[in-house]
Design a protein around this nucleic acid. Structure first.
Lengths: 213, 213, 213, 213
DNA sequence: TATGAATGAGTGTTCATTCAT
DNA sequence: GATGAATGAACACTCATTCAT
């Protein structure tokens, strides 16, 4: 499950430091020009070191992309974890999760855009690796929904609603040209959450009526 | 508003024919390797002609991408038009529109995938041109929602729900690795439409209660 | 000595007509873009027919260049001949020859420019063929000088002065950016001829003084 | 007035060294095949490096041509300067200048040939830049003539004679196929200088006689 | 005869990657 | 560890030439 990127450098802390530089520079660059249009020289420059040094920390240009993609979900998962661990059974916990997730998608919108548009450029095994991380993300929402709406939602509904939430978060970033003209992040979150609540409320109604009969 | 791609060929019907070949070959190829990884020679070959002939019908590699992107919404719009013109005021018309749209997204899923992942590779003016077509598509859903739920939905809600429907259709294609494992197209359509109906039903309830008071 | 360009067309008068069109269009084009930058399509268009037709009258692109180069000296020789045949022994005949020649170089300056800059693009045998025509031109001046200054000029001096006259004529065209800003053609002719006369006068003086001794 | 050619190489001394290699190889090559027929790969090879390395030192193929053209007049000017600075008022100084110039044109005849035949292939701004350098060269001769024959020659005569000297020098190279068969460089120089002296002597005579009267 | 669609070898140029310093 | 000069495979694009109609 682990996918390591080899480096000829021995000093581990240096690797971490350099790759952080690299990640930061690369995202900025990929956002502007996309992965394919960015040259390795530009990547090196954006990261603050020479082309020679770049190749001390990666083996192929693709590795840079992988580094970026890989980091995104790690960050998302790390930050979502905190929210979710607190409490996962009430409606408010769903709102908190959605809110945090949308908040995060707002902060990471450049990264997410890159992820969306360049994932396919990775070799198949790296793609699968990244998609697996995405599945873990999806499961976070599924878990919350399961816990809070056990009796109301079918498995299919849970899958679907999780997916919907998931891409609504990403949509905020990669459809910014239409959404961010009409909504602030708070408005967007509020409205989408209201729509979600309507859905769940109605489904709950139906189930309860069904249960009465 | 028109964006023509110049060709050195005089026979207009030949241009149409060759560009159809080109479109078809290019989509197949781009789906496999993406636009950037596909070479012009491969594109030519996939279309069934030589590199020289390819350049009789386009001027830049980008033009191929534009041709593909441009055609997608033209086809979508043409086919949606038929459905929508019939009737745009009942709930069933919304279902029909969604069903047709999802159906179409299923058929064109390769094209949509390409569109999503390569749009950014187009020059800015071509991007805008394509995005404008997307806006027209969005307006189709907005119109139906406006007609059927005039008193129930705010403008914001209409915008948002249209966007949600829009990307749920595309999601069926570009997230096929997760969705198409769990649902058939009919199931997906049915479930998403049910969720949508729940939403609308609940919002209608709220509005009516509000009105009663 | 003859260098024919083959054509698949039988009707000789048509060949002559088409090649005249070709010559005219090509000179205009070569003057603007040079031989190498001009494409065969452009040449055909400038001549007023299609690329297919062009290749009915030539076999290689080079042939067009040859046609142009070849025609230049033919025209120069034809027109100089008339002047020279009249009278070749007096000083006035030298002036007339120079004047006609400069006049001609003025009229044909585009062609001469092309000739100068593209001659090297011809295959070796065609180059030699054209240079031989140039030699014939040179001999015209040599003949006049020999006839009029038999006792005054050595063979070397005749060669040199002919060459000087020859290139002073061409200079008028291909150094137009400096000369034609300062002189009219008449002035240029007059001044250069005066300088030439001074030369010949002084040489005559010397020879006569030498002869006296 | 400066026209720099950009390079991605940082080591300035290396740039100078590589461009010298490039210059030398390019002249040899252009002399044989002309600029247009020479491929960049051939240019690189002639310079002794790979195609990739070539493009580290130039940005466009045209740059190679510019490099060559630019260097010619720089060299001519540098070497003429020495001669001219010594003494610019006597007849002997004119002879020395002409002799040095012809000598130089002999040494640089390949470069001059290239210059003559390919200058037009440069973009307009580079052409003007090079032609300006040529004008500076012309002014050298004008200055000497002005100093030595102030009272004898009109401005027009100075312009014209300078031009004549200028192109007679170049003629030695680009008409070598006729001139160098008949003359050694010394003979050519001597004869042309004699003709020039005759001219000036006669003009001096005329002016003096005119003055006496 | 005239046309112009088709061809593909050839060209300028880029850029990921290596390696000597 | 860091640098950046060198490399050459690979690419987009052009254009002379052919040939079926």
């Amino acid at each position: 499950m682990v996918k390591e990127i080899s480096s000829s450098i021995k000093d581990e802390s240096l690797i971490v430091k350099r790759r952080a530089q690299l990640h930061k520079g690369a995202v900025t660059l990929f956002k502007q020009k996309g992965f394919h249009r960015a040259t390795t020289r530009e990547i090196a420059k954006a990261a603050g070191f020479s082309i020679g040094t770049l190749y001390e920390y990666i083996r192929k240009k693709e590795d840079v992309l992988f580094l970026v993609c890989d980091a995104i979900y790690d960050e998302v998962k790390a930050r979502m974890k905190a929210v979710i661990d607190t409490d996962t059974t009430s409606e408010s916990s769903l709102f908190q999760a959605v809110e945090s997730y949308f908040q995060l998608m707002d902060e990471l919108q450049d990264e997410v855009l890159v992820l969306y548009q360049e994932l396919k450029a990775l070799p198949k095994d790296a793609q699968e690796y990244v998609l697996n991380k995405e599945k873990e993300m999806l499961r976070l929402f599924e878990t919350i929904l399961e816990n809070s709406y056990k009796d109301v939602l079918s498995q299919n509904e849970i899958t679907l609603i999780s997916n919907n939430i998931f891409i609504q978060g990403q949509m905020w970033g990669f459809r910014r040209w239409v959404l961010q003209k009409e909504f602030s992040l708070e408005q967007y979150t509020q409205h989408q959450f209201n729509l979600l609540k309507s859905q769940l409320a109605h489904l709950t109604q139906i189930k309860q009526q069904g249960g009465v009969k």
